[in-house]
């Protein structure tokens, strides 16, 4: 276990380049980073075959630290860049890392359309219910009544569920995990990467510095422990009443369906109409 952790550290982090990182002590982003690396490592992918694209925000800084083809894009646009990469070179494994504001406010349109398109990309969304990097303003997942630097009188809007949004928009695979359940998160991310089609993992994470502090949710440990108490596995949740589920959320695989993948469909069209076979990226047509 220790040896494996060392292998992952040596192999996948950009040691000499960009550390120390920007994250606050106790931030959940490090746990997500660890889960992502363990998932990729256990799948045995070549580093050169993996592209990780991120948007703007704390979690999106992840691409700076990990040693893949990394693409730190503009705010909310990670999925658009990722779509271009995936279509141009289908053999690459394309993963995006975004925050809640990044993916569902400024990038909300790209998010639902990537899901609708069912393009073969994995989207990891770190949901900490706030805009941490800019100083704790309210985000689309800030709960009703919460305090933030832009809702000092209490938040008057309602939050929405990222996972339910993804399911409704047509994602093939949607899972939710938390930074408390790290081993479970490893599995969720691994399944999402393996899944053919648009796969989303929503990770409930803590921002004790911006969100927790203003809402008296405690420090990092206390917030992360709260996730332990609030999270209910999907199977168990099915047996619980609405009252019992009050204040809790489900974790696990929320949606897993098979449907045609647009990249594969397009490859077929290309194959049928191609006059000059093998001109550009025919070697990529093996795997989308």
């Amino acid at each position: 276990m220790v040896v494996e952790a060392e292998v992952i550290r040596q192999n996948y982090l950009r040691h000499n380049k960009k550390f120390p990182h920007v994250w606050c002590p106790g931030c959940g982003n490090g746990i997500v980073l660890g889960s992502l690396l363990r998932a990729i490592h256990s799948l045995g992918y070549d580093k050169d075959d993996v592209v990780v694209a991120s948007g703007i925000g704390c979690s999106s800084r992840m691409t700076t630290y990990i040693d893949f083809n990394t693409l730190h894009t503009t705010h909310g646009r990670a999925l658009t860049f990722a779509t271009g990469v995936k279509l141009a070179k289908p053999r690459l494994r394309v993963i995006t890392v975004m925050g809640d504001g990044d993916a569902t406010a400024i990038g909300g349109n790209h998010f639902i359309h990537a899901a609708r398109r069912n393009i073969n990309i994995t989207a990891i969304i770190v949901n900490n219910s706030t805009y941490g990097m800019t100083g704790g303003q309210y985000s689309p997942t800030t709960p009703y009544g919460s305090r933030s630097t832009t809702s000092v009188y209490g938040h008057v809007e309602h939050d929405f569920s990222i996972s339910e949004l993804a399911i409704t928009a047509g994602a093939s695979f949607v899972a939710r995990g938390t930074v408390y359940h790290a081993a479970h998160l490893d599995r969720m991310i691994e399944q999402a990467i393996v899944k053919r089609g648009f796969a989303v993992v929503e990770v409930i994470s803590n921002c004790h510095v911006q969100h927790g502090r203003r809402n008296k949710l405690g420090g990092a440990i206390q917030m992360i422990n709260t996730f332990r108490d609030q999270a209910v596995p999907v199977a168990k949740a099915k047996k619980m009443s609405a009252e019992e589920m009050e204040g809790k959320f489900t974790i696990g695989v929320l949606c897993d369906v098979e449907k045609p993948i647009s990249t594969e469909e397009y490859a077929r069209i290309r194959h049928e109409s191609c006059q000059l076979p093998g001109e550009l990226h025919d070697e990529d047509d093996q795997d989308y």
Partner: peptide
């Protein structure tokens, strides 16, 4: 965004 991604992929 997509054309930048595609260009980065060559």
């Amino acid at each position: 965004g997509a054309i930048i991604g595609a260009s980065l992929a060559g």
